[in-house]
Design a protein around this nucleic acid. Structure first.
Length: 475
DNA sequence: TCCACTCACACATTTGAACAGT
DNA sequence: AACTGTTCAAATGTGTGAGTGG
């Protein structure tokens, strides 16, 4: 895990550079986020993580669990997770590796998962790891349960957003920071493609114990309760397996050299030497061919860096354009430097910021600056309905009572968040790391290259960015 | 025919109510 | 009365494998 950050700031606050220097400032520049269970994530990532998506919704495994520090203990924060496409392609599993199978399908309704504890004081978020265990993924575009909707055979990665806000409705005045962890990227599937992933899941997910080939059922029952041993055993077998099963023609792991500090770490590292990513074909293609094909070229990464979560309504296009213009962000120019029409200019990303779920006004995509996505993504023409994925029962009273929910029906009872980020051209996730520090994803380099960045690096923490938020006309 | 997808199933854990003991 | 621990059933989370449909 490494720190790759993209810092954006609200126009109402000093530039990131200022924040970097002010350790004690209230600018949230010190927020750190680390991924729990990174070794497990890495194990999956090295093989090519797959997440099952089902109609009724399926939990992730491993599930997202993070550690947060640097929050103001008494200030309230909201924690959000959303899933953004890794790229604009659809994939297929061919024998032992993933291959590009065409362009991505139109973006499904965009949803964001709100951590049920939200809002909670910083002390609450920092006192223990924050788990998103109950987050569910679905392929049902008509899902009524607020699950995150994804396309099968597409690649995604989760983003974690921290917003300092007393409630959901003061979010608009808040800065929020976004963190991503490269090792959490995954391919959404309706059935596992890579048998090694299946095995890893079975070996590590307690609910799948019944499928472990450790003997008969009676034996399995007898083995209950010896978790530590089993864990170690699993780890070993996992390592062995990966070693043996590594298909040819795959690219080298991007996690070589990472120190997991476990008994099996040595083994793992040894394995990594020979383990190849199932993205060999696809990734290579992306890295080389696709990268070239992309109209964005190197800007693709910039897009990645500057992605923004957008609270807003799908149908309602963002309203922040003018507002943004009013208050040029110190970082905007630098952000804009990322490039060409649409995707890379800062303006093109403006739609990704807070939007106004105003049912009465529906600016055109053009006017509103709907995500100027790469041509290959049809996201611009998609319904970016963003349902803040919070179950009513779980939501806190301060949020529930808000009239905001009224227009969206009892089921969702949530704010609508729209984002144009999903369509950005993302760099291939399992990066063959040619020349970066083991603890720094290649993106880190890109991030630091962003003009908005200041010098400090989070080590071992997630990528992060700080997003400007704009006032909504109504919520 | 191929392949992505759905569904019922057996097996697992988790959750929470009920109860007993301190 | 309050707290803790145990038990049990229901709810829920798993991958499997057969079947379906485009």
């Amino acid at each position: 895990m490494q720190a790759i950050r993209d810092l954006k700031h609200n126009f109402s606050i000093p530039p990131p550079s200022a924040m970097a220097g002010a350790a004690d400032s209230y600018l949230q520049g010190n927020i750190r986020m680390t991924l729990e269970d990174p070794e497990l994530w890495k194990s999956f990532h090295e093989i090519g993580t797959e997440m099952i998506i089902t109609k009724p919704g399926r939990r992730m495994f491993p599930h997202c669990k993070i550690n947060i520090s640097g929050l103001v203990p008494y200030a309230k924060y909201i924690l959000l997770v959303d899933m953004v496409p890794e790229d604009a392609f659809r994939y297929k599993w061919n024998k032992d590796k993933w291959e590009v199978a065409g362009k991505a399908e139109p973006q499904p309704p965009y949803r964001t998962y709100l951590h049920p504890d939200s809002p909670a004081p910083g002390s609450h978020w920092m006192k223990q790891p924050v788990s998103f265990l109950k987050l569910k993924l679905t392929n049902n575009a008509l899902d009524q349960h607020g699950h995150i909707i994804l396309h099968s055979m597409h690649r995604y990665h989760p983003r974690f957003h921290i917003v300092q806000a007393d409630d959901l409705y003061s979010v608009r005045w808040s800065v929020f920071q976004t963190f991503t962890f490269p090792e959490t990227s995954f391919t959404a599937v309706t059935a596992y493609q890579n048998t090694k992933i299946t095995k890893l899941k079975i070996d590590n997910n307690p609910f799948a114990k019944g499928f472990r080939d450790e003997g008969t059922n009676s034996k399995r029952r007898a083995n209950r309760g010896s978790d530590p041993e089993r864990l170690a055993k699993r780890l070993n077998s996992m390592v062995k397996d990966a070693d043996q099963d590594s298909p040819p023609g795959m690219c080298r792991s991007s996690y070589e050299g990472l120190d997991d500090g476990r008994a099996a770490s040595k083994e793992l590292e040894d394995v990594k030497e020979e383990r190849y990513s199932p993205w060999g074909g696809a990734s290579d293609r992306e890295n080389q061919g696709l990268g070239r094909e992309s109209p964005l070229g190197s800007d693709a990464r910039d897009m990645y860096n500057t992605e923004q979560l957008v609270p807003g309504h799908s149908t309602y296009q963002p309203y922040r354009f003018h507002e943004y213009g009013k208050s040029p962000s110190p970082s905007s120019s630098s952000l804009g430097s990322s490039g060409s029409a649409g995707r890379s200019s800062f303006e093109s990303r403006v739609p990704d910021v807070a939007t106004v779920p105003d049912h009465d006004s529906k600016p055109s995509a053009h006017d509103s600056g709907l995500p100027h996505c790469p041509p290959h993504t049809s996201a611009t023409s998609q319904d970016y309905t963003g349902v803040l994925n919070m179950a009513v029962a779980q939501a806190k009273p301060t949020m529930l009572g808000h009239p905001l929910y009224a227009p969206y029906g009892s089921e969702q009872a949530l704010g609508q968040w729209a984002s144009g980020t999903g369509s950005s051209q993302y760099p291939p996730p399992p990066p063959p790391p040619p020349h970066h520090h083991p603890h720094h994803h290649h993106l880190a380099t890109d991030y630091s290259a962003q003009a908005v960045h200041h010098g400090y690096h989070h080590s071992n923490v997630g990528d992060w960015s700080q997003y400007p938020l704009f006032s909504y006309s109504c919520w």
